[in-house]
Computed example of a mutant assay.
Amino acid sequence: MNLRYLCANHRQWLIDNTGRAEQAWLDWIERGRILCEEGNYREAIPYLGCAFDVAGMLLTQQSPSYTISATRFSESAAQLMAAYRKLGDEKHLQYLLVGASSVLARQLGDRDKQGLAADCISALYADGESAPPHNGGGPRLHKEAGLSLH
């Protein structure tokens, strides 16, 4: 299963300009949120999916920083998973959970990134379904990211 939401042309267009990519992420995540609040989950998935794709690209580039890009990546994954959950699409939800967790798990070997990476992974499991063992309480949020995970 391949969960790519952006076509190759849009992907390259955004990779070529991180400022444009960040603005696209902000626009798409907000539009997806609004559609979900209205109960239009099926319509929200393309927006949230594109935001997730862009967040993955920005995470690879660590733009504008690792903290912000990792937080945005996990926030995008969590919102997209929530939309799939509302539609009852367990297959896509689980595929996304495993894929996003794997991307973040690659950072666990880096001492400077492992705390945030672990928190972002925990946030993906925050709904209580299939949650891994946790060191007490909910995921810590990193203030420097300026974002919270939902």
Rank of each mutant, 00 (worst) to 15 (best):
L3R: 09
R4E: 14
R4L: 11
Y5G: 02
L6Q: 09
A8M: 11
H10E: 15
H10S: 14
L14V: 07
D16F: 00
D16Q: 14
T18C: 08
R20K: 15
E22Y: 00
Q23E: 14
A24H: 08
L26V: 11
W28H: 12
W28T: 01
E30D: 10
R31H: 07
R33L: 09
I34D: 12
I34T: 15
C36V: 13
E37L: 12
E38A: 14
Y41G: 01
R42D: 12
E43D: 15
E43L: 10
A44F: 03
A44L: 05
I45Q: 03
Y47P: 01
Y47L: 08
G49W: 01
C50W: 00
F52W: 06
D53R: 03
D53K: 04
V54S: 04
A55C: 03
G56E: 00
M57D: 05
L59H: 06
T60F: 03
T60N: 11
S63Q: 11
S65G: 05
S65P: 01
Y66R: 05
Y66M: 06
T67L: 05
S69R: 07
S69T: 03
S69H: 05
T71D: 06
T71V: 11
T71H: 02
F73V: 02
F73P: 01
S74T: 10
E75F: 02
E75Q: 12
Q79W: 03
L80N: 03
A82S: 14
A83K: 06
Y84T: 02
Y84F: 15
R85F: 08
R85N: 12
L87R: 11
L87G: 01
K91S: 13
H92D: 11
H92G: 03
Q94G: 07
Y95E: 14
L96W: 00
L97D: 01
G99T: 12
A100V: 07
A100S: 14
S101H: 08
S101Q: 12
S102L: 10
L104V: 09
A105V: 02
A105R: 12
R106M: 12
R106E: 15
Q107R: 13
D110G: 05
D110Q: 14
D112R: 10
K113W: 00
K113P: 04
G115M: 04
L116M: 12
A117S: 14
A117I: 07
A117F: 06
A118T: 07
C120W: 02
C120Q: 12
C120G: 04
S122V: 04
A123K: 07
L124H: 08
G128S: 08
A131K: 09
A131F: 00
A131Q: 13
P132T: 04
H134E: 12
N135A: 08
G136W: 00
G136F: 00
G138Q: 09
A145G: 15
G146W: 01
L147H: 07
L147N: 03
S148V: 13
L149M: 14
L149C: 09
